[in-house]
Simulated scan of single mutants.
Amino acid sequence: MLLALALLSAIAPLATDMYLPGLPALGEDLGAPTETVQLTLATFMAGLGIGQLVVGPLSDGWGRRRLLLGGTVAFAISGVACALAPTAEVLIGARLLQGLSGGAAIVLARAVIADRAKGDAAAKLFSVMMIIGGVAPVVAPLLGGALLGPIGWRGIFWVLTGAGVAMAVGVLTLIPETLPAEKRHGGGLAAHAHNMRYVVGNRRYVGYALTFVFGFGALFSYISASPFVVQDVLGMSPGQFSVIFGVNSVGIVGGSIVNTRLIGRFHARQLLAFGVTLLLAAGVALLLEVTLGGTHTAVVLPLLFLVTTSIGFIMGNATALSQAQVTKAAGTGSAVMGAGQFGLAALISPLVGGSAVQMASSIVVCGAVATTALLTLGRPAPRPAPSAAEAASPLA
C-alpha cells in the first residue's frame, strides 16, 4: 500500500519533470513564447493546489478511496487532452485539468498515512514515501529526454496517460478505505468551515505547514528555471540537463534516506531545522555566485545539489509534524498544505523565468521564510512552571 501511495504522490513530479526537457521544442512546435510555455507549468501547479483544497476537506466527510479512484481516472483522461492539444491555449487548459485531478491523488495519499500512523512512525512513513516517490524526479527527466527524440513531447503525455491508468489500478487493488464512517463528519459547508478554522487556528500547524510550503517553493524555483539556466546560461544540451536534473533528484532521495535513518536518534523537528538551515545556506551561497562570482558551472551545480538534498530533510518531517497537530481533520490539514505548496509554485514559475539570479533570489527568499516560520510559529509550546507543591516534591 505504501508503494501505491508513493506512486500517487509521484504524479506531480512525473507530470512536471518528464516534459521539462521538451519545453523549448514544445514552444517551437506550437509557436508560443517562453512565457506562454511556462504557463503550462504554472497552471498545472495551480490546479494541483486547487484540487487539493477541494478534495482534501471533502475526504474528511466522504472517505478517501472513491475520491482517489476518481482523481486517478480523471488524470488519465486529461493526459489524452494534453497529448492531442492543437494550440498552447488548449494545452494550458488541459494541464489545469491534469493538475486538478492530480491534486486529489497527492492530498489523499498524505491523508491515508495520517489516518494510519502518528509521531515518529508517521515521519518515517512520509520519509519512506519520499524515497520511493523520489525515484520519479530522478527517472522522469531522463526518461523524458530519452523519449523526446523518438516520440516527441506529445508522446510524453501519452506515457503520462498510461501512468494514470496504472495508478487507478493500484487504487483499486492495493488501497483500502482508511477513514471509518464513524470518524467522518456530516459534510456540508458548515462542517468544512469548522475544519478549516480548526486547522488554520492551530499556530504550530501553521508554522510547520509554512515551512513545508516554502521549502517546496525553493525546490520549485529550481525546477521551473533550471531547464533554461542549465541549457541557455550554462550552455548544456537537453540530454546533459536531463542527467543533471536526475543527479540533483538523487540528492532528494539521499537526504530522505539519511533522514529516515536518523529519526529516533533525533527528533523530527531537529532534522527539519537542519534541513531549512542547509537550504538557506546553500541558497545564499548560490545567490552570491551568480551575482558576484560569474556563474561558474563547477560552483553552481554543487550548490544546486545541496539545495535539493536539503529538501529530503524538510518535506517528510514538516508533513508529519504539521499533520500531528490536526489529527481530527487530516484531509483538511493535508489540503491546506497542498494548496499552499502548489499555489506558491504557480506564482513562482513566471517570476523566476530563465534567469539564474532570479532563481537564486527566489530560493533565498523561500528558505528565509521557511526558517522564520519554523523558529517562530513552529516552536514547541513552553512547559508550564511547576507549582509550589511540585517544586517542593522530591520527585521534582
Rank of each mutant, 00 (worst) to 15 (best):
D29S: 15
L30T: 12
L30G: 12
L30E: 13
G31L: 15
P33G: 15
T34A: 15
T34L: 07
T36D: 07
V37I: 15
L41T: 05
A42V: 13
A42R: 08
T43E: 00
T43G: 04
F44N: 02
A46M: 10
G47C: 10
L48K: 02
L48V: 01
G49I: 11
G49P: 01
G49L: 10
G51N: 02
G51K: 02
G51C: 14
Q52L: 13
L53D: 01
V54R: 01
V55I: 15
V55Q: 02
G56S: 06
P57W: 03
P57L: 05
L58M: 15
L58Q: 08
G61Q: 05
G63P: 08
G63S: 06
G63V: 13
R64H: 09
R64A: 05
R65V: 09
R65H: 13
L68H: 01
G70L: 04
G71M: 06
G71F: 04
T72K: 08
V73S: 10
V73M: 09
A74E: 07
A76R: 11
I77K: 11
I77T: 12
G79P: 13
G79Q: 08
A81M: 09
A81N: 04
A83W: 00
A83V: 11
A85Y: 04
A85H: 07
A85F: 10
A85L: 06
P86C: 14
P86A: 15
P86Y: 15
T87N: 10
T87Y: 14
A88C: 07
A88W: 13
A88I: 15
E89F: 12
E89I: 13
E89G: 15
V90K: 02
L91R: 01
A94V: 01
A94Q: 02
A94M: 05
A94S: 12
R95F: 14
R95Y: 13
R95T: 11
L96G: 09
L96Y: 11
L96D: 07
L97K: 00
Q98V: 10
Q98R: 06
L100Q: 01
G102P: 05
G102T: 06
G102I: 06
G103P: 00
A104Y: 04
A105M: 10
A105C: 09
I106Y: 03
I106G: 02
I106Q: 07
V107Q: 02
L108A: 10
L108V: 08
L108K: 03
A109I: 03
A109R: 01
R110I: 15
A111I: 12
A111Q: 01
I113V: 14
I113H: 00
I113Y: 01
A114G: 08
A114H: 03
A117F: 05
A117G: 05
K118A: 12
K118C: 12
G119Y: 07
G119T: 09
D120F: 04
D120N: 08
A121M: 01
A121V: 14
A121K: 03
A122T: 10
A123G: 13
A123D: 13
A123M: 09
L125D: 03
L125Y: 09
L125P: 04
F126P: 06
F126R: 02
F126S: 06
S127W: 03
V128W: 10
I132P: 00
G133A: 05
G133C: 03
G134D: 13
A136N: 05
A136E: 12
P137T: 07
P137A: 04
P137H: 10
V138L: 07
V138I: 14
V139L: 11
P141L: 00
P141K: 09
L142S: 11
A146H: 10
